[in-house]
Design a protein around this nucleic acid. Sequence first.
DNA 1: ATGGCGGCTCGCAGCCGA
Length: 259
Amino acid sequence: MKLKIVTWNVNSLRVRLTHLLTWLQTEQPDIIVLQETKLEDKDFPLDELIAAGYQVIYSGQKTYNGVAILSKQTITETVIGMPGFADVQCRVLAATIAGIRIMNVYVPNGSMVGSDKYIYKLAWLEQLYKYLQQQLKQYPSLIVLGDFNIAPEDRDVHDPKAWEGQVLVSEPERQALRKIMDLGLQDAFRLFENTGGHYSWWDYRAGALHRNHGLRIDHILVSTALVKSCKSCVIDKAPRRWERPSDHVPVVASFNWSG
DNA sequence: ATGGCGGCTCGCAGCCGA
């Protein structure tokens, strides 16, 4: 069975709904996880997404954060948030689809190194580590994907000198991500591409897209049991050039899954 | 370059994002 699995930070689902529907129409992913929906559940555009052929689960709040999972196949075992971590911010959504555990994460931005938000980000990542450690034992076939707000290495940064030590790039953040990956999770994009210059986010300002001044901060991490079935992982830059785009673009992984 | 852009809100300016 072929599976196309996608992550996309839409930066307001209300604003980006037409982009999403257009993209779903042409790309037909089996599973797509969204971040920054910025919608309360009562305002979620459920009917439109069902009409597009998807089952949907979501966890949202006003103004900030908000996550959703869309799937053509049946969604089971839904868990909202991280168990044991009381958080008013809607950043995590997990479910089982086609025998694969899907973990949608919107990692905190962190604001500035050393700030309260940065400390929250590191604590949050430690909690995610514990959660994934437990989940991997229960579900060996697991994919954790979303907006990690961390560029793993300098080749994921357009100007590593300018970004050195800053939030999204700082060593403690990278270390926290490496610790998570050391649980047995591989960066799908790096299974197929070793060069730099590939990004998933570009600032709206200063012609960043045109100059390719971006960061690769949206990731698809695949558990060891699934690595062999992962056949490609690409970043679809096209929607960033559409009118009134999200500042992030979809990251798309394809699998030949026999589970 | 601490700006720039875009989305949000009991808005008309200030926040947050990355």
